[in-house]
């Protein structure tokens, strides 16, 4: 393709091709501190015009690649960076086979990790991002990678996709952070990508052992309850895009995870409270 960019995030390498220069320029800027990797990629993403003439006329970006969703709606070129990020997510969700992929966030201290999962909107991305100011390194905000053979979590420190109000909150917490451009009026409102703090990026290939599995819910009075292994297992199979296709490796990895960690559901009104609860559970 006319314009392209290679990058490695944790153990996964991507090749992104684009019919337009702008998304690639934005990717280069956003990922400037990541390993720029030109070896054989794990996944290819393509940003292509929906029709040949749509490269110039009301240009709109189709998200394509090794794995595609047939009916994905195109995005305007102004949101090309978002399209690239969605394309990378799509490849992971549909094509990842080396790791059990959990739709979750993870933070770590040294080599011990906390996995946080819950429905979209439960605030796990924001919580994970803000915990960086409290002595945690960010391992993942969207996809947690569990290695079946070792039971370890591998970092996948993509830029955190923050939405609407969370953008200002994080900007106040991290005045020196490296950000992507602010994209207004996306299908999910305003979106801006926050690059993880340098410690998270520096430890981008350092796995950690999961010790705590958390089901956080934001916006409620502080409360905590233990979660049974069976319930945790069911909720994590639902949060995994590749549990079934991994077969017995997935079964062993996931039963091993839920049996080997402390499991808790927490409701929290603010990050301060959540951080305190986590320190106590930890």
């Amino acid at each position: 393709m006319r314009h392209s960019f290679h990058v490695r995030v944790g153990p996964v390498s991507f090749r992104i091709g684009s019919a337009w220069p702008e998304p690639i320029r934005q990717l280069r800027a956003l990922y400037r501190d990541y390993p720029q990797d030109v070896g054989v990629p794990d996944f290819t993403v393509r940003l292509a015009p929906s029709r040949p003439w749509r490269r110039w006329v009301r240009p709109s970006v189709m998200i394509e690649g090794d794995y595609v969703i047939p009916d994905a709606a195109p995005l305007p070129v102004a949101h090309g960076l978002l399209a690239a990020e969605m394309g990378m997510n799509l490849q992971m969700a549909m094509g990842q086979r080396r790791f059990l992929l959990l739709h979750a966030a993870a933070v770590a201290r040294d080599d011990r990790a906390i996995v946080m999962t819950g429905e979209s909107g439960a605030g796990k991305s924001t919580l994970a991002a803000l915990l960086q100011a409290r002595g945690w390194r960010l391992m993942a905000d969207e996809f947690v990678l569990l290695e079946p053979s070792s039971g370890l979590i591998h970092p996948f420190p993509r830029p955190v996709s923050l939405k609407n109000g969370a953008i200002d909150v994080a900007a106040a917490a991290f005045p020196d952070a490296h950000w992507g451009p602010l994209m207004r009026d996306t299908p999910k409102g305003a979106i801006r990508h926050l690059v993880p703090m340098p410690d998270g990026l520096a430890a981008g290939e350092q796995p950690a052992r999961p010790v705590l599995l958390l089901f956080p819910r934001f916006g409620l009075a502080a409360e905590q309850r233990p979660v049974g292994a069976g319930e945790a297992f069911v909720r994590l199979t639902q949060a995994s895009t590749n549990y079934v296709i991994l077969g017995e490796r997935g079964f062993a990895a996931l039963t091993g995870l839920v049996r080997g960690v402390t499991r808790a559901a927490i409701d929290y009104p603010d990050v301060e409270t959540a951080a305190t609860m986590i320190e106590a559970l930890w």
Partner: peptide
């Protein structure tokens, strides 16, 4: 393959 999960048992059918 069986794995005890507290109150339940997960059975993987090969």
């Amino acid at each position: 393959v069986l794995a005890d999960l507290d109150e339940l048992v997960a059975v993987f059918h090969r």
